Computed example of a mutant assay.
Amino acid sequence: MPLMMIEPASSELPPEATLVVEHGSVTAIPVKCGQLMTITDLQGGQPVQLHAYTDASTGEFLSAHHTRVFSNSYRLNQGMRMVTNRRRPLMVLGKDSCGKHDLLMPGSTGTSLVEAGFQDETGSREAFRAAVAAAGLSPVKFPDPINLFLDVEIDTSGTITPRDLSHPAGTSVVCRVVIDCTLFVGACASDLPIAQSRGPVEVKIRNQL
């Protein structure tokens, strides 16, 4: 499926880069409109949290809630636009070798992980806040993530059932960036009762209009 067509960038795009997000951490990645971002689970079975604030204002951010409403789906699927709290497309999901991405569940915390029986794990919300502070940003709101590679089901009674992470090593997605922003990519544990790895995640940023 082709990625969203956009206007050529008015300024030179930043250099291409490859980063590795270690398990239990969140990494800030500045990206510009027109770039492609590939997120790869190197070992498989690792959930990935995705956040973003636009360069124009930290008051506008990637919103799982608004993406659900905008797309009328609790799952992120190929071709869907990931929108901000102002319902503006920030990224679009292109190539996807997983097909299971969640728009419902909040980020884990240190407390919720301990209560779920996980030891020595960093909560995604604490890691996200630390990464935002390190990036020099001071947002008013810390929104819930879009959860890549995380699969949940909702039955007819409304019960949410998490599924074990069974995707293999090398599973990836490719997203087209539509608004200049700072992305925050996390490889933190989920507090859901699912089997998951403690592997790193690789992020490649490419310049390709």
Rank of each mutant, 00 (worst) to 15 (best):
R86T: 13
T84E: 15
V92F: 07
T58V: 11
T171W: 08
I6T: 05
N72L: 11
A187W: 05
H66S: 03
K141N: 08
S166W: 05
E153L: 12
D151L: 06
R81F: 07
M80V: 08
V31R: 10
E60G: 01
V173C: 13
S172M: 12
E60A: 00
Q35D: 11
V173I: 15
L104G: 06
C188G: 11
G79H: 15
L76T: 00
I205P: 03
L36S: 11
T27R: 14
E22P: 00
I205G: 03
L36T: 10
D144M: 04
Q78T: 11
F149M: 14
R125I: 13
V203K: 07
F184A: 07
R81N: 07
P200H: 04
S197I: 05
L93F: 09
S63A: 12
F149S: 15
A127N: 13
A189Q: 15
T27I: 13
E22V: 02
I39S: 00
P47Y: 02
L165S: 02
S138T: 14
V132G: 04
E22R: 12
T38C: 04
L90M: 14
G24L: 00
S73M: 13
A130T: 13
C188N: 15
M5T: 04
L93V: 06
V31L: 08
G45N: 00
A116S: 15
Q78P: 04
T156V: 01
K204H: 09
V21C: 04
M105F: 00
A127M: 09
R88L: 14
S112G: 07
D191E: 05
T109D: 08
P139E: 05
P168Q: 06
K32V: 10
G158Q: 05
D41T: 12
I6A: 00
V48N: 02
Q208N: 13
I154V: 15
T27D: 04
R88D: 12
T67P: 02
T182C: 10
V201L: 12
G117N: 05
P89Y: 00
P89F: 01
M1Q: 10
P143V: 01
S73P: 13
M105H: 03
G94A: 10
V132D: 02
F149V: 14
L165P: 09
A116K: 13
D41P: 01
S11R: 15
D180T: 04
L209Y: 15
A195T: 13
S71W: 10
I39N: 02
A28R: 02
A52E: 07
D151A: 10
F128V: 01
G45V: 00
P193M: 12
A52V: 05
K100G: 04
L148T: 07
M5G: 02
I179H: 06
E12R: 15
T58K: 01
K95E: 07
N147P: 14
T58S: 10
L148E: 08
D55F: 03
N72W: 11
G170P: 11
L62E: 05
K141L: 05
I160M: 15
G45T: 00
T84R: 15
R68T: 09
D102R: 03
